[in-house]
Design a protein around this nucleic acid. Structure first.
Lengths: 161, 161
DNA sequence: CGCGATACATAAGGAGCTTATATATATCCG
DNA sequence: CGGATATATATAAGCTCCTTATGTATCGCG
């Protein structure tokens, strides 16, 4: 791992160190087998519905970073599998509200439990200092992701429409 | 975010906190647009070849967690695009050594630069404490990934052959 | 009302994975 | 040494999940 001292004198966080660590982690994490096998985007949509309630397709398109037809198809598959339901939006005849079903909620929870089963024993093998270091970084990582999402949204609003 | 105090009294790192943070980060990070669009696995293979030199298909299959035919096809696409070359292994007539080409090296570097361009301004907006927190966590995250890879390897060796 | 904008769906095509199976070379053992 | 078995890779068929291009219905506004 390269040192975190930057050439310009800034101390702290080197981008290459970050991306390297994240990618090494993801190489393991992304492929964590799940009982049901659901794509990254699928889970992301289920997460969005769990935390934010029913949403329009358009709304999901904005956050999920796939094309609108791609999302329509994803929702169609999810509906076929009984994980979500399409319901008309009473306020707008063009729109559709995507509702999570109980089965959808259960699937997401099952997969959460699954990850927990895999990761918990590994975390137990870390030193207390390592655990503390990761725990301390999570709020900052979350904020970094938020900043990234904002930047994306801005970039989109400048180029489109 | 739930508190990091576990019900069993263990302090430190809650699995749900970790997976939530990682997934929020990945939602942004994974989809970071790249000039060339390369799949996660593709980049992972290029990374492996950059850091470890030419490798057999079999060797890549072990680390990349995709099936052997899947990897053969991936290498075929990479070869078609001029990013790698297949060369015979002088020591084993059955084997193939996958070599990175200059173009392959350049593509990987371009994408590394790309991520740097995207992330650097975001990192600059974090507080010094946040940057420090993330930097301090990276070695632990790396170790967590290593433990995960080991566990996977063990699980495989128990079930297969 | 009619016209542009918006929300979603459909169609066609390609990437990238899977399992099952084939082929070539290596290795081991009597 | 020769044949059985194991190993390294390739091919085939099929599915998921994305893309772009385009179609259709509804909304809102002058």
């Amino acid at each position: 791992m390269t040192p975190s001292q930057r050439a310009d004198g800034t101390t702290g966080l080197d981008v290459v160190d970050l991306t390297t660590a994240i990618e090494n982690f993801n190489r393991y994490y992304i492929r964590l087998p799940s009982v049901q096998q659901l794509s990254f985007t699928t889970l992301s949509v289920l997460d969005a519905l769990v935390s934010g309630g029913p949403k329009r397709l358009t709304e999901l398109v904005r956050t999920e970073q796939i094309s609108q037809p791609g999302l329509t198809q994803l929702v169609t598959r999810l509906e076929r599998d009984g994980l979500v339901e399409r319901r008309p939006d009473p306020a707008d005849g063009r729109a559709v509200l995507v509702h999570l079903t109980e089965a959808g909620r259960a699937v997401r929870q099952a997969r959460q439990d699954d990850r927990e089963r895999h990761l918990a024993p590994l975390i137990a093998r870390l030193t207390p200092a390592e655990r503390e270091a990761i725990a301390s970084a999570l709020p900052a990582l979350t904020r970094l992701a938020e900043l990234g999402a904002e930047a994306e949204a801005e970039a989109r609003s400048r180029t489109e429409r």
